[in-house]
Design a protein around this nucleic acid. Structure first.
Lengths: 199, 199
DNA sequence: ACGCTCATGTAACAAGTTACATGATTGA
DNA sequence: TCAATCATGTAACTTGTTACATGAGCGT
């Protein structure tokens, strides 16, 4: 049940329309909780129905017309409740790790180029986060909000750093099958489904 | 579309019944792709229907009777195709980061105990991974499969290491609002939800 | 006969994804 | 007026979650 609370947070930071929210879920908040506009409109409807938010009266309720929402006290209370709630961390769920495991069974044919591609993507994301850090978190200010937001950004930075390091190391580990026997194996792709028969 | 391929991988490693798979999705494979037995049975049905796996003839098809599956050549081919496929990494999606951001808006009341709790959980998980590494990856062997499986485990180790470090640092950052000015800020809560007024 | 565990399943729902539909506004 | 863009929405589907149902085999 994270999306509604992500929306409440975004709306508290600044009342917005559905499309404006969608754009913000492509940047700031979206860096650690993405959502499409369909999800957002659906959820806005629910939140309004439950009395957590309301449409600002200025906008008419016709199709194609902008409709801005703001958070009601009940919504703020619900968000505070959820924030302090006890929630276990979700276990890792990563298709790339799964594919690496599968590669151990059906052969590591095309996976190296994927690792390289992911490495480039994570490096780019890391650069972006570092730029944001430089821009939005100069050494000066030090409110509690600043620290919280900085901590979140630092999680992004550290996670991307982890990926770039792990991918680099894994590539280095895989590239040189080193021993001549292994090299010979690699140059002998006998058929469709031969699962890496190494020495 | 990861679950069917996770199951194909598991079945290639060892033909199993639904319940045996469920158990394995609580351990080895489950460390980076979890699944409940309902998901697994549903997916086994689909995979059989599509001709990727088949039930071993030994077992009768009655309810309550064990039914073992094995992977057919088409299933192995599909898994190899998927493994080498180009798939973009998913952006981060973490409720804890979201809650930290929300705490910046509605106040960081209960979040510190959550951070400590998560820290303990991640430390325990890290210990478990390190034990597995010691047990399953002694310095000796060095086949391609070994390297792949070790790389996957190392991802788990490095990720848990990241979390423990980040949580420790974030806790240290939050505990002492330190500077008098920051303390002054914190003691001026303009509205509903007083954010973190600790000593 | 009873309860326990093993084992397979159904049903209903929640969350996320993909494709498409529709109206309003604005500038060429 | 036409196309592009802004803006809100529907529909259908897939994936994941939660609760429950049912049968087989075994020990007491």
């Amino acid at each position: 049940m994270s999306l509604p609370h992500a929306i409440l947070t975004a709306l508290l930071e600044k009342p917005s329309s559905g499309l404006e929210l969608t754009r913000r879920f492509d940047r700031s908040i979206g860096y650690f909780w993405s959502a499409t506009h369909q999800q957002i409109y659906r959820e806005l409807g629910k939140l309004e129905h439950e009395g957590y938010i309301r449409a600002l009266p200025s906008a008419q309720p016709t199709r194609g017309q902008k409709k801005e929402y703001e958070v009601l006290p009940a919504g703020r209370a619900e968000l505070a409740r959820w924030t302090a709630e006890s929630q276990d961390p979700k276990p890792i769920r990563d298709p790339l790790l799964l594919r690496l495991r599968a590669a151990g069974v059906v052969g590591a044919e095309g996976i190296e180029s994927e690792l390289r591609r992911h490495l480039a993507l994570h490096q780019r994301q890391l650069t972006e986060y570092l730029e944001i850090e430089e821009r939005d978190f100069p050494p000066g200010r030090d409110t509690v909000e600043d620290r919280l937001r900085h901590a979140v950004l630092r999680a992004g930075i550290d996670l991307e750093t982890f990926w770039t390091r792990w991918l680099s190391r894994t590539l280095a580990d895989l590239e040189p099958p080193a021993s001549p026997s292994a090299a010979a194996e690699a140059s002998t792709p006998p058929a469709v489904d031969t699962p890496t028969p190494p020495a």
